[in-house]
Design a binder for these strands. Sequence first.
DNA 1: TAGGCCATCTGGTCCT
DNA 2: AGGACCAGATGGCCTA
Length: 185
Amino acid sequence: MKSKGKGSKRTRRSWSEQEHSDFQLETEPGSSEQEGSEASLQLGGTWKALKAEGSTRLAARRRRRQHSSAKERNVRRLESNERERQRMHKLNNAFQALQEAIPHVKMDKKLSKIETLTLAKNYIKALTAIILGMSGACLPHEGTQPEESPVKLLQRYQQHLEDDKIGHDDLSKYLDQIHSFRHSS
DNA sequence: TAGGCCATCTGGTCCT
DNA sequence: AGGACCAGATGGCCTA
């Protein structure tokens, strides 16, 4: 895993750190909040949200915001930041769990998020191909049964574990990917 | 040094 | 109304 200085992530000027300069701009009632928001959007280079929004909602939100003081908004923003941080941490934990659920990967290297998703997708496809192949082999009729429940498929898979019927394209693809990850690390 | 990846902040929208 | 979710922006760290 990459060693990333966690403390250094807060080097960007935060909302609360900007509060004094921002609040000084709020001298004219009714103009400060929205203008500040638009200015930040302009600086950010995105007008998508503004274009998409109706004027009614905008006005409602503007009224709502004007009722709260700068201090209250500051507190809500900080709370909101903390919630977002926790949400992202949970998301990262889920990514970590997913990575550990993929065999032959967790000991090798830290996968990026896109690598984790791609590998998991291929792994699922490989397992699905194997299970479908096995279930098809022991069915009385030709072909597979798409309507068969995953539970039944899993049961068939468990019944035929000792048959070792491996060798599908998806599995090869998955194994190739594992191999490339190992060699790239 | 450029590019990839990431954490965090932020404002908007959706949902309960 | 407030929290969850989302996407854009920003800046730091790491590696080729």
